[in-house]
Amino acid sequence: MAREPIIQVKNLVATYGSRTVLKGVDLEVYPGESLAILGRSGCGKSTLLRHMIGLSRPAEGEVLIKGQDINRISEDARVAIFRKIGMLFQSAALFNSMTVGDNVAFPLREHTGLEESTIQIMMKMKLDLVGLSGFDRFKPAQLSGGMKKRAGLARAIAMDPEILFCDEPSAGLDPVVAAGLDNLILRLKSAFKMTIVIVTHEMESVFTIADRIAMMHEGVIRAIGTRDELKQSEDPVIRQFFNREADDEEIDRDQYLNTITGAGG
């Protein structure tokens, strides 16, 4: 992989108020690869994605997509870049006032000059890909959580993006559908040469779909590499994650009492 990275994150620092969530993240994503981002809940994975797609401005550092700093370029250049990017939000973020079909058709209607009949066909194809054919007239409120996720994915790939970001695509899905989704992502990668950045907790899907794995811990990328490289790691944080071990619960009785009574601290 000696090619130029398509996404470069350089020393990214992100804060919410006075809390620093990302403390200098460095990350490179290469064209055509799939990168999985792992990490404990609340460690800042969604925050990292928000910065990578330019929804939040970094406190420090920069994000480059195709060599361009997305926080410095003109509005027009940004629009040109983002037309080629799809994002599946953790909450799916479907437009609740539109039907599922209109949600998927929306980017096509806004960005392409295609005929309505063509758009309808493309919309139905994308819904079929995620296993939601026949649901195009439903409102998002009438879908289950997992179905919303899949509809969100259909919308994210509506424009056949070059880069696809997925925030926990398979959370809340049954194993059959989750496996189907993994297959879909693999197909997108091989057929459309999409670059895929995916946040997930499902180790199964990480092993199936990810070329490389980035492990986040306490606001930085603790380790990055292929599955085998990470499996051989001696780092306790990584080993704990891969072996599905719970935190060591050596409860100090006095401290526990203090915590629950709010005394001392």
Partner: peptide, 16 residues
């Protein structure tokens, strides 16, 4: 409501 449910963010990521 659109802001809270990230719909506005979704709009922005589509370049709209």
């Amino acid at each position: 409501t659109m802001r809270v449910s990230e719909e506005i963010d979704a709009l922005a990521t589509m370049g709209l």
